[in-house]
């Protein structure tokens, strides 16, 4: 996935000289996750460069660049670090088109590695996506596969609105299935790791049907797509597994059609439970598919605690937690 994202940035920098990349350690070094490796060498230090450690400054400067007419793609090194930049994000980036009646716009894509399972402790593991989905004016994108990561990032950079692009860092080097104690898989033989060299787009707002089945609908995004898929296989369940890909705008049509067909819905995310995006999904499914439901909607999430260091696998919504929810959903 790292190479796929790097390829998206490479393709867009080559095609569009308005694309500018900056962030902490992204320049000469190529980023702490190597996502921007080689880009400074290829495009020069005025198109890909390091930034001071001020997320407020990084996002604020990117807004000014976008107002000038560039397409900045700043990186916030960890999602956990984005909070000092939230005023620039909420009060500025998200509002500039509306408050100026499109006099000014803010086509800006902020790349943000997120999620846990890397022994990152509470400041390198968080999943704050619901903070962003709560902000009118921002799109929130979460790829789960290398193919999607590239196509969605290109679509995000070409989009006219500010986009938060959340990269599931536990899947940077392979699809994580939830079994931290088994040998790590790489993307090498994975069908969704096929990435075209050139330019392609995965449109924002279109979910992906990962597997098709009639027993229930599973809604997931990022790392949890792979975990959920593994658990479904182990339990021998035929489910519509929907990888949402973008949270805002949400592909509500695909969700509705699936839940109407299956009558059961499981929502899985790694973020804390209360007011998480799963709450929004649960409300939408209840509002729109109530008469098709044959069991209460289930949410499987992280716990409402800070992300722990040594106990991270107790926190993580892994196969046991998902399996129990499946049992409850399919009991009747």
């Amino acid at each position: 996935m790292v190479q796929a994202i790097n390829s998206a940035l490479d393709v867009m920098m080559a095609r569009d000289d308005r694309v500018m990349i900056f962030g902490e350690d992204v320049g000469y070094f190529g980023g702490v996750f190597r996502v921007t490796a080689g880009l400074q060498e290829k495009y020069g230090p005025t198109r890909c460069f390091d930034a001071p450690i001020t997320e407020c400054g990084i996002i604020g400067a990117a807004i000014g660049m976008a107002a000038y007419g560039l397409r900045p793609v700043p990186e916030i090194q960890f999602a956990d670090y984005i909070y000092p930049g939230l005023d620039q994000l909420i009060s500025e980036a998200a509002r500039i088109r509306h408050r100026s009646a499109a006099d000014f716009t803010c086509p800006l894509t902020i790349r943000v590695p997120f999620g846990g399972g890397i022994f990152g402790g509470q400041t390198h593991s968080q999943s704050p996506e619901s903070l962003f989905t709560h902000i009118a004016g921002i799109k929130t994108v979460v790829p789960a596969t290398p193919h999607d990561a590239k196509g969605l990032l290109i679509a995000a950079i070409e989009d006219e609105d500010p986009v938060i692009f959340l990269e599931p860092k536990r899947c940077y080097n392979g699809p994580f299935d939830g079994y931290y104690d088994r040998p790590a898989r790489t993307w090498a033989d994975h069908p969704d790791a096929e990435v075209d060299d050139g330019h392609y787009r995965v449109p924002l707002g279109q979910a992906r049907l990962v597997t098709e089945g009639d027993q229930l609908t599973v809604l997931a995004y990022g790392t949890m797509v792979h975990v959920a898929r593994q658990v479904l296989v182990e339990h021998g369940i035929n489910a519509d597994l929907i990888d949402l890909r973008t949270l805002i705008p949400l592909d509500i049509a695909k969700i509705e059609a699936s839940v109407r067909k299956t009558g059961r819905c499981l929502i899985v995310h790694e973020a804390t439970r209360t007011s998480g995006f799963g709450a929004e999904l649960s409300a939408l499914v209840q509002e729109r598919c109530f008469y098709s439901l044959e069991a209460p909607i289930e949410r499987v999430t992280g716990f409402d605690t800070p992300y722990p260091h040594s106990l991270e696998w107790s926190y993580f919504p892994g196969p046991i937690r998902i399996g129990e929810a499946l049992d409850r959903l399919l009991r009747e």
């Binding site: 604020g60 400067a61 990117a62 807004i63 000014g64 660049m65 500025e92």
Partner: peptide
């Protein structure tokens, strides 16, 4: 530039515009 009601948010934005 479009005025914000929040204070000094325009400072890093101006720097970014000037960098561009």
């Amino acid at each position: 530039f479009t005025l914000s009601g929040n204070l000094t948010t325009q400072y890093p934005q101006a720097a970014g515009w000037a960098m561009a």
